[in-house]
Write a protein that binds this DNA or RNA. Sequence first.
RNA 1: GCGAGAGUGGCGGAAUGGCAGACGCGCCGGACUUAGGAUCCGGUGGGCAACCAUGAGGGUUCAAGUCCCUCCUCUCGCACCA
Length: 639
Amino acid sequence: MQRNWIGRSEGAELTFPVADGEGGITVFTTRPDTLYGATFMSMAPEHPMTMEFARKSGREKEVREFVERVARQNREERTGEEMAKEGVFTGGYCVNPATGGRIPVYAANFVLYEYGTGAVMAVPAHDQRDFEFAKKYGLPIVVVVQPAGEPLDGAAMPAAHEGPGTLVRSGEFDGLGNEEGKKAITRHLEGKGLGRATVQYRLRDWGVSRQRYWGCPIPVIHCESCGIVPVPEEELPVVLPEDIPYSRERGNPLAAVESWLRVPCPRCGKPARRETDTFDTFVESSWYFLRYIDPKNDRAPLDPEKMRRFAPVDQYVGGVEHACMHLIYARFFHRYLRDKGLAPGNEPFLRLLSQGMVCMQTTECPKHGWRYPEEVDENGRCRQCGEKVSVGRSMKMSKSKRNVVEPSELIAKYGADTARVFVLFAAPPERDLDWSEQGVEGAFRFLGRIYRLVAQRAAEIAAASLAWDDSAEVRRIRQATHRTLFKVTGDIEERFHFNTAIAAVMEMVNALYLVEDAAWKAPATAGALREAVEILLHMLYPFAPHAAEELWARIGGKGLLCLRPWPEADAAIAREEQAEVAVQVNGKVRGKITVGVGATEEEVGALALSEPRVREHLAGKTVRKTIYVPAKLFSIVAN
RNA sequence: GCGAGAGUGGCGGAAUGGCAGACGCGCCGGACUUAGGAUCCGGUGGGCAACCAUGAGGGUUCAAGUCCCUCCUCUCGCACCA
């Protein structure tokens, strides 16, 4: 997902000497193979050489007019593929280093000054933007990469050919495949000191400063004569003033605090002003987690020795928006810290889980717009005007859409445990979650159910000791307990699939409800049931800690449940002795048989073939092949 | 346009290539009750059946929701990056 944002692209920097003058224009291109087809040059309007060319050629007026017009357009207007390609001839020329030909230099609105070198060699035959530009201004289109098939004609082609092909009209490079051509031409120019292979990166713009009070101060002072001066180290940290006027007016409240704002310049001592913008929170959160490892260090931001022991972070959990924004900045920071020898490795995080968003259906009144759930009555009408509201599809919860639930109300009505269980049960964490009042009720009911079960049996459980006999009943109970524990442990630790873990706990609760009264009372089984309930509460704890802890106390558990180690599932106990095996004939299930888990393929096969329904479907056919998936399935192929 | 993710019952969702629909919601029935929107128990994809069902269509396989091709739809992110 970050590929677009990091924007790594391999290519070459090539220099085009300025015709009738000094120096040259360096461009970045991913297609050095098309160099012979470069028939003009496009420069960003902001590029300093744009106006320089114009001044020399006496075209200053036209060029300035264009540059200023583009500058007025905002980025949104200027970017976007639909935007018309526009440009103006600067009056200057440079020399194509391959052909030696003079080519005109244009300023063009689609060339971005901040990317690459801010200048592009234009190859209209093989780049769609250049193609459109050339058509508009009547510039030559020279085909230099010929794909298989009909020879392309620059004048007649309807669009640029951006794909692969064989080099033509490229002097000594004719006949090379275009991929080899890239290398060969780059090497050739390198020999002449006019080019080199490079890799360009494009880190998405990150506006690190914010016009607000709540943020880390940027330790910088603005001085009329010295310019931007860093706050001296001994004066760090810059502390924000506390007596600030909170107003709803626009602008940063810090700008109004004269006593904080006015400081002498650390360099010349003349009156100066502090920077009032503060850092974007992503700045701090790009590395604060490492500081936890070494929080009291007052000599350095981080101790590399300690970093090597604890970093990197094992698991990062964040929303999709973090995958591109915060994560990319944090990785950027980490590389800086690595280069400074402060943090080990290339990456700050080992694993990423990007969790989904919480969504809820939206309701809209024709007169009043978005409605909060409580602004709609039971009949689906707006409480303000009585109009029928329309129910829209589920969207990310946001105050602007009013499709939100108030956590405090939710907690007052159901408690925090219910909210947790619902959120974790409704969907796996990487998926978006649909909020549902009924789902919340369901979570509440589940907690009530488990609470009643354990509270009702509390006395019996507390009286039982963790001892049992080897009866079938005990084995059944313990098997169910340990199987559930396996499932829950795996779902939590390996997959983070809390929804299926909770489902397994629910199943176990359902099973415990069916246990006969006598079994709770008989010492032999009561011990196994005590184990079952203890483990049950352990498994409940991560999802509903308050209820689990309270029930733990009720059954006479020692100390706090949360301080006890997670129980260990016993594979020997969890193992099934019997298994139901589905018998398939030509891919369709025709019967089921019960076998011991250790049964051999021959034993299972014999049993399978004696099933009446199976025999029916085999009548008149010859068995060609059988496949046995132990303890699961026996498949017969026959014709 | 490029990139990422997702399409499974009435709904949220389960399912190392091995019995599709676990668990929950909703709905139906029963029990207990003066009462039930509480609780407990049972049922619940479609079709009378053979069978049919995981967005559509092909393929691989004894076996496909899962793997491979060709599409469609939705969500999110990016968007002239040379």
